[in-house]
Nucleic acid binder design. Structure first.
Length: 536
RNA sequence: GCGGGUGUAGCUCAGUUGGCAGAGCACAACGUUGCCAACGUUGUUGUCGUGGGUUCGAUUCCCAUCACCCGCUCCA
């Protein structure tokens, strides 16, 4: 499927518009139109219903170690600045980058390293990003090449013993960039603020800065104690939240896939450390299943378990649910959701002070003065099991899904062009959005076959009977074939048509979007029939 | 952030060596029709992405800028 066709349909039918379009648009921001808002709302509602309000607290689900409870939360977008220091986002999201004017490559400032070398009377710094095993090999061959020497002349090079990182080399004019052939091609380091900064208070001085949240998860940790103290939930239990998050993406691209303002659907699931591994597997499988049931089936959807070297040091498992978006190169997948085993990293960091991800077992990260680099709240966030009297810091499983990415995946999966016969039986091209009935913006359209003989009146009655239950659409204008095709493009799964037989026996035809088949049902059965078909 | 491409009606696109802005589809109304993009008649739609410059005159040439697509980079 060509992505342009979908983008064009999304605009034409009112699924997605560019933000601030009349002013030329704004990079990384997108609006949902009348159809899009229904679709995305249905995706979020399905998630909330399936994960939270529809969850059975009493029954042990297949694959789960035991029954568990689920509750919801809705917290603020702006939180105390310390939240992001202890979560690790502050350090991680303030990278310095350098660009190479020659190779056009960009590097993280602190990850470029190298050594001073002297040869042919010249002294310069050879930078590299090669892996530790062959960094010396890489530096040597590039130093030789720069000086026009052969590999047998390697002994003419005199290396400084010390390996330095770029921040330790103030003069970049004598630096040979990792992919450069001449000296001094690296720019000064530039700061990348990946969190949106704002100020709190009308006067807004330097001390009043705050951030728009880059994820909703931290708000859940902030309220862990409140929820435990106010709801009688017992571990294991989960807290769910849907809400906007903000990240200053370096390169927003691919339609809504990498937006700077986006919506997340996140769960923090708190469990006993001993059973956390089982819970991780349960959530991983359950979340994959959720997408499958809503129509993302087949080999475009996959679960990818992270390899050990991809994992954060404190995590014993992370899996991504990925979709082969059509705008990606063949064979590439884009992330819809990450399910991470986070251990007790978050609760401990917010209690004791930010932990150092590189330590094992985890220890509080210290600043130059030997004190915690980022102070925690000092509040005890441990949990006491009232049955066993055991006190422990729960481990956390975090299924974190992107609402906009899921919506985009459903749109991509739904877009289809097929052929349907016209009035002469000749096949004509048809564009159809094969959205699952549960997330389709409009559930059914109601038409009078023609605008006379009392058909509109009957059709309007049916419309009014359905409207309190579902989002339905009435249309009496133009030829019925055209009306069907318009609904196909909107993804409406069913069309109900009043015809001359209706006048005699009070039955209507119902047309299925995907099979184009039609059959008759009684007017009185319409509400129940549509309800049953949406749920199946 | 770099390189390449694109930007004209709601959508897809044509066009102008610099001289009144075009088509198809869509949309609206009326009539005919009577189950899969029908036909006829009529009608609506544009700061030619935005800002500046050159020019008697710029949608067209020049500069800047914004957005989208592709490739690099990034992907926390």
């Amino acid at each position: 499927m060509e992505m342009d066709r979908l983008v064009s349909l999304c605009k034409r039918k009112g699924f997605l518009f560019q933000s601030s379009e009349i002013y030329g648009g704004l990079n990384g921001f997108w609006d949902y139109g009348p159809l899009g808002v229904e679709l995305k709302r249905n995706v979020k509602d399905a998630w909330w219903r399936d994960m939270v309000t529809g969850h059975d607290d009493l029954t042990t689900l297949p694959g789960a170690p035991e029954a568990y409870e689920m509750v919801g939360l809705d917290c603020t977008i702006i939180m105390h600045p310390q939240v992001w220091k202890c979560s690790g986002h502050y350090d991680l999201f303030h990278d310095y980058m350098v660009d190479c004017r020659e190779s056009k490559k960009r590097y993280r400032f602190d990850q470029v390293r190298g050594r001073w070398v002297e040869g042919k009377g010249q002294r310069f710094f050879v930078a590299t990003t090669a892996e530790a095993d062959h960094e010396q090999e890489d530096m040597q061959s590039r130093a030789l090449k720069f000086l026009n020497l052969r590999s047998k002349d390697a002994d003419q090079l005199k290396w400084d013993a010390e390996c330095l990182t770029l921040p330790q080399v103030p003069d970049r004019s004598q630096v040979l960039g990792p992919d450069a052939k001449t000296l001094g091609t690296l720019t000064d380091p530039r700061e990348f603020n990946l969190m949106f900064k704002t100020t709190v208070g009308a006067l807004g001085g330097e001390d009043d800065f705050a951030f728009l949240r880059p994820e909703t998860a931290q708000g859940i940790f902030m309220n862990f104690k409140n929820v435990v103290d106010s709801t009688r939930v017992r571990v294991p239990f989960g807290i769910a939240q849907i809400g906007k998050s903000f990240r200053n993406e370096i390169t927003p691209r691919n339609f809504t896939f990498r937006s700077r303002e986006f919506e997340q659907m996140e769960i923090e699931f708190f469990c006993h450390p001993d059973s956390s591994r089982q819970w991780y597997q349960f959530w991983r499988d359950r979340r994959l299943n959720w997408y499958t049931k809503l129509g993302l089936a087949g080999d475009r959807l996959r679960l990818r378990e992270h390899s050990p070297d991809e994992l954060s040091h404190y995590s014993t498992g992370t899996a991504d649910i990925e979709y082969a978006f059509p705008f990606l190169p063949a064979g590439d997948f884009g992330e819809l959701e990450g399910i991470a085993h986070r251990g007790d990293f978050d609760l401990r960091s917010h209690s004791e002070g930010k932990l150092d991800e590189k330590t094992r077992p985890l220890q509080v990260q210290l600043g130059p003065d030997g004190k915690p680099k980022w102070r925690g709240s000092g509040k005890d966030l441990s949990y006491r099991d009232e049955l066993t009297n055991e006190r422990f810091l729960p481990h956390v499983i975090e299924p974190s899904a992107g609402a906009d990415r899921a919506t985009l995946a459903f749109l991509c999966e739904a877009y289809a062009e097929d052929e349907a016969p016209d009035e002469n039986g000749k096949p004509q091209k048809r564009v159809v959005m094969r959205l699952h009935p549960r997330i389709a913006p409009v559930k059914a359209a109601i038409f009078p076959l023609v605008k006379k003989d009392g058909m509109p009146e009957i059709a309007q009655e049916i419309y009014r009977a359905l409207k309190p239950h579902f989002n339905v659409f009435y249309d009496e204008k133009g030829a019925v074939g055209r009306r069907y095709r318009r609904q196909d493009e909107a993804g409406t799964p069913f069309c109900i048509t009043v015809d001359s037989q209706t006048l005699q026996d009070k039955t209507v035809t119902i047309r299925d979007r995907d099979s184009l088949q039609q059959w008759r049902i009684r007017i009185d059965d319409c509400v129940e029939d549509i309800r049953r078909r949406i749920q199946s």
